[in-house]
Structures are given as structure tokens and as C-alpha cells.
Computed example of a mutant assay.
Amino acid sequence: MLQNLAAIGVPVIAAINGPATVHSEYALTADVILASESAYFQDFPHLTFGIVPGDGIQTVWTRAIGDYWARYFLYTQQSLSAQEAKQLGVVAEVLPPVVLLMERARTLAEQFLRIPQLTRSTTDQATFIK
């Protein structure tokens, strides 16, 4: 799944409108991450059910927040609010309710569509370390 998300080849915008507690790493593969004020990130199921968080979540979160914080995040099952995620550099913008969140996502998508297709796909390749 993560490889497929990484191979999309065009800018992807994630609009997180609530809890991202299962496979939150999927949202982190987006080029731009927006979150509502009520959104939060957590890895709830792995340790809760005695499963090693080794399905890609560890790699993506490590890339997003660094080795130490990723280990802390996963071991403690920490819940990161949208604002905390923004402070850590995971989220680009924190917005009020869903209407404004989706409005902003659409505005960004329209902005990205004005960039020539070749430039968009080449920028994606140049900025995403595979």
C-alpha cells in the first residue's frame, strides 16, 4: 500500500478531519497534509493488540518526526493533536471545521493543477526520497 501511495506521481493532498489512529502513516505519504482542529494522530492498534509496528508506520513516522520522536510516539501510543503535529512539521495547516478544511484542500488542488503536468511529476520525483 505504501509503495502504491508513494508512486502516485502527482501532488497528493491529505485532509485529515478527525482521528487518524489506524494506519496514520498513509496520510503522511501525502505531499501536503491539512488537518482540522479536531484531528489527531496515534498508533492505537499495534501495541494494544501485541503487534509490532513494523508494517511501514515506523518508517514513515521516523521520516516525518525523526528517530527519537518516532520511537517515543510508537512506544507510548502518544496522541498528537493537529496543532502538535504542525509544530513537529507533520501538518502544513490546521483549519477550522470540515467545510474550511475541504475548501482549502480544493484551493490547493486547483493551484497545483495550474503547474504544468511535467513540472508537477518531476517535482514529485525530485522531492520524494524513495
Score class of each variant (00 low, 15 high):
L2E: 05
L5M: 11
V10D: 06
P11M: 08
P11L: 06
P11Q: 06
V12W: 02
V12N: 04
I13K: 03
I13D: 04
A14S: 11
A15F: 08
G18H: 09
P19S: 15
A20D: 05
T21D: 14
S24E: 00
E25C: 10
Y26K: 00
L28P: 06
A30F: 05
I33F: 04
L34F: 07
A35V: 03
A35L: 05
A35H: 01
S36G: 15
E37C: 11
S38E: 13
A39F: 00
A39G: 01
D43Y: 00
P45M: 06
L47Y: 12
F49H: 06
G50R: 00
V52G: 02
G54N: 13
G56A: 04
I57C: 13
I57N: 04
I57K: 01
T59Y: 01
V60F: 03
V60Q: 06
Y68D: 13
W69S: 08
W69T: 07
Y75R: 13
Y75Q: 14
T76N: 13
T76A: 13
L80K: 12
A82N: 07
Q83A: 15
Q83K: 12
E84V: 10
A85I: 01
A85N: 03
Q87C: 07
L88V: 04
V94T: 10
L95Q: 05
L95M: 11
P97E: 12
P97F: 11
P97K: 14
E103D: 14
E103N: 14
R104I: 03
A105G: 06
L108N: 08
Q111P: 01
Q111D: 11
R114A: 14
I115P: 05
I115E: 12
F128G: 09
F128H: 15
K130Q: 11
K130V: 07
